[in-house]
Design a protein around this nucleic acid. Structure first.
Lengths: 240, 240
DNA sequence: ACCTGAACACCGTTCAAGT
DNA sequence: ACCTGAACACCGTTCAAGT
């Protein structure tokens, strides 16, 4: 019906259309390719930050005209979705053998978090539009196998995998501009808490120093352990 | 030392400077005020989406010049942080009386999530820069009181409150472009799963229909329950 | 058939010039 | 003392014109 209406990048319809058109996509003999563009976008993000990901700079980096990019990509949004799929592939390596389900989930969560922390330019662009991308689906598939394998229903397994992914990405995103580990930042935070009205913020004022020292890893480890505990409770008879 | 270097909006140093300068901020007798600007920004976000939040459109909406905005705000980033603080204030109403700690936390999490879902234009701008804002600190203070009140340490209480906030915001953000409840979207997702290579994606192919029906609320409710269970385990002797 | 220069319609931010 | 028009240096995207 509306097949010729432009579809927002990242939607199911968009991924479907991509899969169906994979065959007759232009086989380039030139240097410029979608893969090269996506890789260049990622390195631009790493080297110069999120603001540097513009079509102009990308073209400059690739030594082509801006317009040439539009032969491989319908626009900036699509480019971002494709670049994020690549990033997911890089951030989700295969876990080591011989771990039990909990260790596996924990290992993957830490691996992806560490990857995002090492590439802070990426994380601003993770908005769920990459959830249906090939590499995300590989991650989803193995998570589902893992959780169905220990006895969760398909629905539970999906909700579980999804909540874990949400939490890992969300906790990095939500701490992007905070620098909780920097001692100077901590001291400023302490001063901020101490200077509050003790009538309205009694706890923050009373525990200013201790609170200013809690970092984003504390938050992450608590949340991750909580989610894993909940899975464990769900597969233990009498639990939950 | 570097007090006259411009500080990034949302950092502790920035909020500190704001608090200290509160006294001698210009008392405007004109219509234009920071509050009005922030409110207009929020309504622009609601009515026209995230892309519409530009200094130009804001000035147009307020019937002033673009340059006039810069008398109240150092730039767009600062405006966004301030607007997000307003949003947090609107999204975190006081919970009803008579609830126990778990019901309270649950109520607040749902209230904030519902608020974000009702204002999808906002959530893209929540990146943690508003974590130290006045209204966020009000929420933090009351969460800390809640969790310290049931026996958690200060550190645990902070990590708990933080993880909950992260998960609520993250789960909305991570599902922004997904529309999991739309039947048409679900059907497209099912087709996408079904069309995958059964060798590489056996679970996704086998359970395509069921998986395509799981929505973002399933994910949210699982995660929220998990976090609350973990708190409960931590305060129950012998738990955790 | 393929690529590009140049344009279009936007941005955020600044500042000389007005009143 | 306060405000603004107009500019500056950028954007994403398009398309007539080149080879």
């Amino acid at each position: 019906m509306d097949d010729d209406m432009p579809t927002r990048a990242g939607t199911a319809a968009w991924w479907l259309a991509r899969a169906e058109n994979a065959a007759d996509r232009p086989r380039r003999r030139r240097m410029l390719s979608l893969d090269l563009i996506a890789d260049t976008a990622l390195s631009l993000l790493d080297n110069e930050g999120a603001d540097a990901l513009t079509m102009r700079r990308l073209a400059q980096q690739l030594q082509c005209s801006q317009a040439a990019l539009y032969r491989h990509v319908t626009g900036r949004d699509e480019l971002i979705v494709i670049a994020m799929d690549r990033a997911v592939g890089l951030g989700l390596p295969a876990p080591p053998e011989g771990l039990d389900w909990r260790q596996t989930a924990e290992w993957l969560a830490h691996a992806f978090r560490d990857f995002l922390l090492a590439h802070p330019g990426l994380v601003a662009f993770m908005r769920g539009t990459e959830r249906l991308s090939p590499n995300s689906l590989i991650g989803l598939e193995s998570s589902l196998e893992l959780f169905i394998g220990i006895g969760l229903s398909v629905r539970e397994a999906y909700a579980t995998a999804s909540a874990l992914a949400t939490f890992v990405v969300g906790s990095v995103q939500f701490n992007l501009g905070v620098a909780t580990a920097d001692p100077e930042e901590q001291q400023l935070r302490q001063r901020l808490y101490e200077g509050l009205d003790p009538g309205r913020y009694p706890v923050l004022v009373a525990h200013a120093q201790e609170l200013s020292r809690v970092g984003s890893s504390d938050e992450f480890e608590f949340g991750l352990a909580a989610l894993l505990d909940a899975i464990e409770a769900r597969i233990t008879p009498g639990g939950g």
